[in-house]
Design a protein around this nucleic acid. Structure first.
Lengths: 143, 143
DNA sequence: TATTGTTATACTCTATAACTATA
DNA sequence: TATAGTTATAGAGTATAACAATA
């Protein structure tokens, strides 16, 4: 057990399961709702407060160029504000507007409604497995 | 235990962990490699053989229009072939070309190299948790 | 020189809606 | 009428590369 072949199979299973459930999340998204990338930024700002562009792009593992474009969209929609860091003129300090804060909270709540309905059908043991797995996946994702 | 609040937290944790590890997969992808959607189609065809467009779009939970475009890209690249179903002239039968078969196998192997390296560092118990969790996530994804 | 951020360009992936062809 | 598939259009999300401003 725990041999080469078995570990390899687990990698395949896990990779496939994650891709499928992620696509399922995406397909559950209603028209007009924010996309994954935009929402992720709002939630990071909601949890951690003011962040720079580099911090945001590191958090989501995208390039600074990609994140700059996501941020521009959010600013256009009035959900975030940018201001220069007076202590370091290269940095932009990014924070939620009141409307962005409202959307972040609402989106996060709505986002989990579907998931929670399904988790409620699992046993306590199964939920415990998923809770542990979430922590392990975080470890993998964060290196 | 298993109360309303705890289940809700688990939904949030799991949702976030899945989004993060999925983005990590994407960021590990080398330039020139196939994207997630295209690769998913190749792997479905590799596992299940000839499929119709509707079957493929159902598998990945995308619209027929989206899948048609993905298929067109793959056909242009010479990785899949389309032919009319003689028994039902509306249907297109989609299958891998030899080159597509080669790419599907190679991509799948390469895709898991990084994941397997990380899984090898986990304990047998932790891998067991992830294996169980993969099955549970499949259940959620597949409804 | 190094870091921070923006912009231009291009590609993948997706949806919706209008369409054709077949059943 | 219903189903299978395509195409046009639009938008999100991403990368790379060239760039400007600041440290």
């Amino acid at each position: 057990m725990g041999g080469e072949q078995e570990v390899s199979e687990l990698g395949a299973e896990l990779r496939t399961a994650i891709a499928r459930i992620y696509r399922r999340f995406r397909s559950e998204r209603a028209a007009g709702e924010l996309g994954e990338a935009a929402l992720s930024v709002l939630i990071s700002l909601h949890k951690q407060g003011t962040l720079t562009l580099t911090e945001l792009s590191d958090l989501d593992r995208v390039t600074a160029g990609s994140m700059s474009q996501t941020i521009t969209r959010l600013a256009t929609d009035g959900l975030i504000q940018r201001r220069r860091d007076t202590a370091d003129g290269r940095r932009m300090l990014i924070e939620l507007t009141p409307e962005g804060e409202r959307i972040a909270i609402a989106a996060r709540a709505h986002q989990h409604t579907w998931m929670n309905a399904r988790l409620a059908e699992f046993s306590d043991d199964e939920r415990a497995v998923l809770r542990e797995a979430a922590a392990l996946m975080r470890r993998v994702a964060d290196d």
